[in-house]
């Protein structure tokens, strides 16, 4: 499909400002050298490689980016950030994009990954710490893949590495307050 570039100036500028606010990064600096894509461990699995994510943002084509699987596949290894010749923290940009896509419920392209983050954070919210057995069971229940990694779980369990009881901390209320604040902030946006 031909991309219509005419007259998107306002959208482009707004997007640059939004990305800068959410990630502290200036996308306009990117000169498309591709070093991020070259070093990215998961670029081959991405629908849009990292340098093209940056390019789409530069052109103001945000929907394509927010609906991509790339932003969810990003393993947050920060190889791109460490090697970017323009000193752009690309991993931070990916974080900001994921956060926004998650907020807007645009997780269709990578449901399981988004789901995992959801369950993980719910566990923290509930217990203050992560309860691995609960996490795995919950994840498998929700994905319908009941025996995913069951072999691993069995070994972990027999070696006493996974408890049956969820951990509990005294400061649970403080942790819950953090999550409440997040909800308030998101509602305010």
């Amino acid at each position: 499909m031909r991309v219509e570039l005419t007259g998107r100036r306002k959208e482009r500028e707004n997007l640059l400002i939004q990305v800068a606010r959410a990630s502290g990064q200036n996308i306009a600096k990117c000169y498309q050298c591709g070093k991020c894509t070259a070093g990215c461990p998961v670029a081959v699995e991405m629908d849009i490689p990292p340098h093209q994510v940056m390019r789409l943002l530069q052109l103001g084509l945000k929907d394509e980016v927010l609906d991509s699987s790339a932003i969810w596949l990003c393993a947050s290894c920060a190889t791109c950030t460490a090697r970017c010749p323009r000193d752009i923290d690309i991993a931070a940009v990916m974080d900001a994009l994921r956060a926004r896509a998650g907020r807007e419920g645009r997780t269709r392209s990578a449901k399981t990954i988004a789901l995992f983050h959801d369950i993980f954070l719910n566990a923290i919210q509930k217990h203050g710490r992560v309860f691995e057995l609960g996490l795995a069971i919950n994840y498998n229940l929700k994905t319908g893949n009941l025996f995913k990694d069951a072999d691993l779980g069995r070994v972990y369990f027999t070696r006493g590495k996974i408890g049956l009881k969820a951990p509990k901390i005294k400061g649970g209320d403080e942790v819950r307050r953090i999550f409440q604040k997040v909800k308030q902030m998101e509602a305010g946006e």
């Binding site: 498309q32 050298c33 591709g34 070093k35 991020c36 894509t37 070259a38 070093g39 990215c40 670029a43 081959v44 849009i48 490689p49 340098h51 093209q52 190889t79 090697r83 010749p85």
Partner: peptide, 27 residues
């Protein structure tokens, strides 16, 4: 067209990881 991200030795070869930004793929 793309910068090289990494070079490492593997046996008697040097593996060069880059990207072809015109293809949009790592090479």
């Amino acid at each position: 067209r793309g910068r090289v991200s990494k070079i490492y030795q593997s046996g008697d070869k040097l593996v060069v990881r880059g990207a072809d930004t015109l293809l949009g793929r790592p090479v």
